[in-house]
Design a binder for these strands. Structure first.
Lengths: 245, 245
DNA sequence: TCAAAAGTGTTGAATGTACACCCATGT
DNA sequence: ACATGGGTGTACATTCAACACTTTTGA
């Protein structure tokens, strides 16, 4: 980002957004192989990547802000969003923009709200916004160097996701509308980081009664066409609200 | 609180604290019978109670702010503190202070960080601070009318606590240094809201290896003197960090 | 002597884990 | 034919829940 652009956006932010408060989104996506996180690279920051983040408008609910930021900065839409933690240490954003004037928006002390989002990898086309040079999926086990405390924010989000998957269904937002049993299992394995037994996984999922078996199969693969499933939205929602699985 | 006092504190806050950001603490305490929450009643608000809350100083870490606020407003010290959620809806603090000027600190739109705290009931003497008329423990199942969304913040905190107790040890901060097995069990029952089987509870707790049996008993009771225990701090900490119980 | 506390035993149900079998089917 | 997927059976271990028995001990 050019200096001029930074100054411009600084003025705009002071007018429209709540100061000292930011939102950072950890966007998880699944590409049938591994779990990925959506990261940006800023124009002025040659080496380090950042989380898609932004600010809360003065008349905007926090959750709406997270949704908007995600849409603007990455193109991701209609997603599962959840505030998972707050990062408010003093030194977390120190040492950045030191060469600028003190009234620069970005030089403030920020308390950031960490949101994690689950999106369907297929339905998201990473959008490179005005201030970014790159926007892409990165596998969670090969994260690049990141700015500030962003790497630990991701780790914190992943830990939260792994806890949640133990007692809440996950998948509705990470998979396409229709998917196969092996795909769902690979998703669980990617999140948890270890292999699951196929038969047991099948029974466990079926027991929760959140799947609808469709009357079609995925054609074109090398072997037997796997049956397609979709989530039963009502039961899925019920399972989300109970904390019993 | 008198109008003059409000205006005074408003000026002070604008100078020292981060705007638009507040902290509310849900302080749980256990009195050997039931689970309580520490609540304040403001001088100017005849009927409604509020959570002990406050603001984040410009050069103060979020967690430190929560600790300070708790100390100042309730006298509670050395406690277990944990940010459990953020409340950032637009209408959550609307409709208050409408009769005041717009530059009144308290009339801002606030995003509040919810902290929950676990304290030893014995070691806390509720302190009535300058702006409060009352400060006292209230049982969680008989909460009074509360201001804004404070009641739902408490419910959210309790739900978090009930989830945590399933896989993390709880008690170190809610009980005195030395306690008996029935006391610990009553705490668990108070948090969960239902009775537990004594023998099974005993074995479960012992299995986690977080208790030290002391060589003394609690004298003076009507019947057999129960054995005193204390927590093994190292193992307790280890159990806190694993998420496996 | 009575009631509470401490500790242990037992039993059946439920759940989790590992493995294996059978069938279907697309190339 | 063969590799993959779908579905089920089974056997073992672990865990949980309910209950009961014993011993200790303070007033």
């Amino acid at each position: 980002m050019q200096i001029k652009e930074i100054i411009e956006s600084s003025k705009r932010h002071w007018e429209t957004a709540l100061p000292h408060l930011s939102i950072d989104c950890v966007v998880f996506g699944f590409d049938q192989q591994q779990l990925n996180v959506l990261l940006l690279k800023l124009k002025d920051n040659a080496e380090n990547w950042i989380l898609p983040g932004g600010y809360v408008l003065k008349k905007e609910a926090l959750d709406d802000a997270a949704r908007r930021i995600l849409k603007e900065r990455s193109g991701a839409d209609k997603i599962f969003l959840n505030a998972f933690n707050v990062f408010g240490d003093l030194n977390r954003s120190e040492g950045y923009f030191t060469e600028y004037d003190d009234d620069l928006w970005h030089k403030q002390r920020f308390v950031t709200i960490g949101y994690y989002a689950l999106v369907d990898h297929e339905s998201v086309t990473p959008v490179i916004d005005a201030s970014s040079e790159d926007c892409r999926w990165m596998p969670i086990d090969e994260l690049p160097e990141m700015v500030m405390d962003h790497k630990s924010i991701i780790e914190n989000a992943l830990a939260t996701l792994r806890e949640q998957i133990r007692y809440k269904p996950i998948g509705y937002n990470l998979l396409p509308e229709e998917f196969t049993m092996p795909e769902l299992q690979r998703l669980y394995e990617a999140v948890l980081g270890y292999k699951l037994n196929r038969g047991n996984f099948y029974r466990r999922i079926m027991r929760y009664n959140i799947l609808k078996k469709l009357d079609k199969e995925r054609k074109g693969g090398a072997h037997k066409s796997p049956i397609l499933y979709s989530f039963d939205k009502d039961n899925y929602q019920k399972a989300l609200n109970e904390f019993s699985w």
